[in-house]
Amino acid sequence: MTPRLSLYVPGDTPLHRVPAAWKLAALLLSGVGMFLVTSPAVLGPCAGLAAGALLSVRTPPRQLARHLTGPFVVLALVVVAAVVFQSAATAATVGLRLAALLLAALAVTLTTRTSEILDVLERVLRPLERTRLVNAAAVGLAVSLALRFIPEAFHRFHEIREAQAARGLSGSPLALLVPLAVRMLKSAEDIAAAVDARCYPPPPAARRADAAPSPARSPAPAGRTDEEATG
């Protein structure tokens, strides 16, 4: 019993075939754009367009309903609150804007693999690397490790909960969380050692180009292979 860790639905619709970078850029631009517009006459067609995009993905209706229930309950609350506290016009603006954004975002989420989104992210981060504030390799590793250890943490949480139940302790958050956090902290040392042992971090050359043949086996110039390995 482990959580399913992706919303991606395999398929071959037009939206599946659009490169991830375009989809994300469009989402970002339309997101910003729609907050600048207040006229329901513009936002209405936007929401319609987003709904059309989502339908073009041809996700099984039941699955679609499951994804939409939660957000639409929130949306309904927002609209009701806006009608009560503000005006019907504001409610229309806010409701249509949120609906358009939710539907469009879901359409992108359902048709884009997580790995594609992360690739785009890495491409965006790479130019920032020169500022020395961002390390694209470290971000990539962190994402991968998190995906690897979410099921692990889930599993450990249930192990601890069962152990507590067996000893007659009913899920006190304190009794659950302290052992969970301590176990995770303890394994951090070993995981870091395992990552280091497999030659992380990649040398800058390996990050940049696939073209250059690996100089891995040539004797390293004395004392200057990789400062990060010992630093």
Partner: peptide, 28 residues
């Protein structure tokens, strides 16, 4: 920040299995 990143990347990592870019402009 990593949780936010995974959310944006479309993983259902928030309470109740929410995720996706749509969370950001939403009320929460």
């Amino acid at each position: 920040a990593l949780v936010v990143l995974l959310t944006i990347a479309g993983l259902p990592v928030l309470a109740g299995g929410r995720g996706g870019f749509g969370v950001i402009p939403g009320p929460t």
